[in-house]
Amino acid sequence: MSNVKAVTDASFENDVLKSEKTILVDFWAEWCGPCRAVGPILDQISVEHSDKIEIVKLNVDDNPQTAAKYQITSIPAMKVYQGGEVVKTVIGAKPKPQLVAELAEFLA
């Protein structure tokens, strides 16, 4: 199973928006095949770059308010938050090297 923390509608403000760290939120669902494929890759990135970025996941089925607020219409959607603002969005499951490249500015 995934080693990254799950966030919810209730915890989103504290865990993500008010966090001092750079946070990547993986918006996902059980029924989404590409989400399941990219999950383990995010787990790896989370471990390898734990000093730079915290990766959390939000189940869109269980937490519709947050998914709606950020206008999620396609998953997996990975949004990077800094100081409560979305600074980067990556849509769709991508191989690890490609994902690392897209997130490079937050991992280095």
Partner: peptide, 17 residues
């Protein structure tokens, strides 16, 4: 607009519509 309404995967994204 991919991921903002444009999609190639109904089973992934239908839920949001």
């Amino acid at each position: 607009l991919t991921g903002r309404g444009v999609s190639w995967c109904a089973t992934c994204d239908g839920f949001f519509f």
